Amino acid sequence: MKISVRDAWLSALCYADIFDFPLTKEEVVYWAPRRILGRLRRADFSGLCQTQTIGETTYWALRGRTRLIARRRRREICFREKWQQATTAARLLRWIPSIVCVGVTGGVAWKNADQADDIDFLVIASKGTLWVTRFFSTLILDACGFRRRPGDTDVQDRICLNMFMSERTLSVPFHERDLFTAHEVLQMQLLWDRHNTFSRFIHANRWVKKYLPHAWGKKTQNSMRQLADKTLRQGRISLWPKSYHARRKTFFASRLLDLVLRFESCVLRWFERPAKIGQLWYMEKRRSTEVISDTVIRFHPVDARVWIKLKLASRLRKYNIPLDKIFYAS
């Protein structure tokens, strides 16, 4: 995709502006739809965007939108409580052996949620356990008072289980690959995973580097770093001398836990078909725009891709930037 540095910079700001989210310079580079190398001068964007420095942080926004900086800082304070709520709820889901990854998506993942907002979860299930995983996830979070229920008006800090994926198909379907989905993939924040599922999810969707090359590079580096840190914590590699027996005991304990979890997941597969039939029957009169298949269950009352594309087009038009070049990397 050939695009000038100016257009890449403005495109990143335009996309973030849809969500009332000014960016720092590092974030603009991170979310730019092309690689930006070298130094950039504010004079190059005179009359197109504005900056404001608070403390040691300089924020960039489209012209006339610097008032959003104060809103972003307020939302960052809200994020701390929401993240704590998310980690607490995610720990409960560890009891379900068929879950191999839990992540936060949506506004909370971008530290851009208001106090009254809920928290979106993406759950990845082991092969052949998609529906039974959803059943037990809903049951546990509902029983503990964490889940957002259909029809709730007060959804503050509630967990919205709006997407389940099977590890059998971690890559996004070809017809959904665009800038919107690339953002959703790379914005996801990991809460916990098993069997390096998060790293496999990122690499299965390496097509996103065509849309957001900087973000893709950083995300893969972070996922590899998290994998290395996890390996060290599990005791499979030691930077310091350790007794042979201690290392062997830690290794076998970890392997035994993996085998137990895999066995329990196999048992749950026996209940997959009745769980699917029962939930589809319950959802029959309530279905609207859900996406349901053998590998994905996705609940979104409104297709965000549609309105985000329209708002992005209106912003890019002001700077004579073609939408298709940015949204579809054409």
Rank of each mutant, 00 (worst) to 15 (best):
A109K: 02
T138N: 10
L179G: 02
F252N: 13
V5T: 13
T66H: 05
N205C: 05
G103S: 13
Y319D: 09
Q187N: 11
P301F: 13
R94C: 10
S254V: 06
R94M: 14
K218G: 02
L310N: 13
D118G: 04
W131A: 02
H203N: 11
F299C: 04
R168Q: 15
L48E: 08
N196M: 08
R269G: 01
S4M: 09
W192H: 06
A228L: 14
T220V: 15
A246M: 07
K318D: 04
K25Q: 10
G235R: 09
G151S: 09
W270D: 03
T88H: 11
D152C: 07
M165H: 08
V172Y: 01
G64A: 12
R39K: 15
H195Y: 13
R286I: 03
L257H: 13
A215C: 08
I321Q: 00
L232Q: 13
S254A: 12
Y59P: 00
E284P: 01
S265R: 00
G106W: 00
E272A: 10
F198H: 10
W31Q: 03
T138D: 10
V185Y: 01
R74N: 11
D157W: 04
W207C: 05
N320V: 08
I321M: 03
R71E: 12
A253F: 09
I321N: 00
G128W: 00
R286K: 15
G278C: 13
T169R: 14
A143N: 09
R149D: 02
I99A: 01
R262S: 08
D294C: 05
L227I: 04
R200N: 14
K219E: 12
V185K: 00
I292K: 00
G106R: 02
L68M: 09
T181N: 06
L122W: 04
R148W: 03
D118T: 05
D178G: 07
M1T: 15
L259P: 01
L10K: 07
W95G: 13
E27Y: 08
I99P: 00
T105L: 08
S171M: 03
F79W: 09
Q85E: 08
N162D: 05
W192C: 04
Q234V: 06
L212N: 01
S166G: 12
E76W: 03
R148I: 04
S126Q: 07
V296P: 03
M1K: 15
F79A: 12
E81G: 12
K309S: 06
S137V: 07
L122I: 15
L312I: 04
S98E: 07
R305H: 10
L191Y: 01
T169W: 06
Y244V: 11
R286H: 15
Y30W: 15
G106C: 06
